[in-house]
Amino acid sequence: MHQPEQLPHSENSIIAELEEAVRGGSSEKRVHTLRQVTNLFLHDGERLSEDQIKVFDNVLCMLVSRVETRARAELSKHLAPVDYAPVDLIQQLARDDEISVAENVLMHSTRLTEHTLVEVASTKGQDHLMAISGRPHLTEAVTDIIVDRGERQVIRKLANNQTARFSDTGYSGMMAHAEDDDELSEIIGLRVDLPNKHLRDLLRRATESVRAKLMASAPPALQKEIKKVIKAIADVARSDGGLVGRDFTLAEEAVKRMKGLNELNDTAIAFFAETRRFGEVAAALGLLNNVPTEMMAKVLEGPRTDIVLIPCRSAGLAWSVVAKILTHRPIKHAIDTDTLKLAERDYGKLSLDTAQRTLRFWMVHNKVEK
């Protein structure tokens, strides 16, 4: 019959100390024993089998939950780079609410499982996400969650992680984060694994400053691709420049995210108009009025200034924002001063109720007035 693998005498002695510390030792005794075992792993643990390490693992998991934060953090720092560290203990340290305990393990431990990374990324705060974001070889399952939950600094760090892998959904989310973050746009644009469709969309939305920085920083192969994409964008703009028929998925994701963060305000929409990002203007008007983006695109590209006023009033936009939309909207002939003044007067007279009723009429009849 198979006998359990025996530990060497010195290790058995320490296990006995561990069990005594768990059962009733003082706080000082627990910390002292914990340090003894840590030193054992650092100097002799590599020669232990997985079965032997498992013996330590079981007792250590109980002990580590009964010591103070500083001792847990010290243990994490020492064991994080150890390839033979106890597996269950590493998962427990990674789940610790205290970032001083979890950080080193989340950043460096090769014993950490994807399951635990997904759990921590889904449930912990921004400090934990920041630690995970710099970890080598992150999988799509983990990056999808970080992209969804991470704030600006976390997303920038993740985008700078050249070994992290992203799903198409993950990249779409990253692009949405980059809508109002030029620094992130530059970081994403320099990723060699960025799919062409996302590179095209990023460059189409990017400011001239971001395009110039990408051209200056990109390696030769990527620089060539960037030039090619920018030329294609310019060719399309010269031949058609229109909104109708465009894929608004990324613009809609961006404005939806901004609305969730209470950032989809007059300032944001004015910025979109000034930078001629009318896909985002159309998506914003669509979201704020609960109507299709495509309908708003037709309104913005249509010949009638008065029609544009309706969804703007219904969305509650200030005249200063509406003026920027009218001034920069994608039409062949720019609005003149007299027409703009007339529009301002009409906008002042247009009631919220009338604007909302007109939009409902358009939706019911599935058409915009001509």
Rank of each mutant, 00 (worst) to 15 (best):
E5W: 11
P8I: 12
S13C: 12
V22T: 12
V22Q: 10
G25Y: 09
S27G: 00
E28W: 09
E28D: 07
T33H: 02
L34R: 05
L34V: 08
R35C: 15
L42Y: 00
H43F: 10
D44V: 11
G45C: 08
G45E: 06
L48G: 00
S49K: 05
E50N: 08
I53Y: 03
I53F: 04
K54Y: 11
R66H: 13
R72W: 06
R72G: 00
L75W: 04
P81D: 07
V82D: 03
A85T: 04
V87L: 14
I90Y: 03
I90T: 04
A94F: 00
R95H: 11
R95L: 14
R95E: 15
D96Y: 03
E98S: 10
I99D: 01
I99F: 05
S100D: 13
V101R: 13
V101P: 09
V105G: 08
T110P: 08
T113N: 13
H115Q: 12
V118I: 15
D127L: 14
A131T: 04
I132T: 08
S133T: 06
G134F: 03
T139L: 11
T143C: 05
D144A: 09
V147A: 04
D148S: 13
V154K: 08
K157L: 07
N160F: 01
G173T: 03
H177L: 08
A178P: 13
D180K: 14
D182W: 01
E183V: 06
L184K: 11
I188V: 15
H198K: 09
L199M: 13
L199A: 13
D201K: 09
M215W: 04
A216W: 01
P219W: 00
P220N: 01
A221E: 15
L222C: 07
Q223C: 00
K231H: 14
K231Q: 15
I233A: 07
I233K: 06
A237H: 15
G242S: 14
D247M: 13
T249V: 11
T249Q: 07
V255N: 05
V255Q: 05
M258S: 07
M258D: 10
L261D: 14
L264T: 02
D266F: 08
T267E: 14
A270F: 03
R276S: 11
V281C: 01
A284V: 07
L285E: 05
T293I: 03
E294I: 01
G302Q: 02
P303K: 12
S314Q: 02
A315H: 04
A315Q: 05
L317S: 00
W319M: 01
S320P: 01
V321R: 10
I325T: 02
H328Q: 11
R329K: 12
R345L: 13
R345C: 04
L352T: 09
T354A: 03
M363K: 14
N366H: 09
V368G: 02
K370A: 13
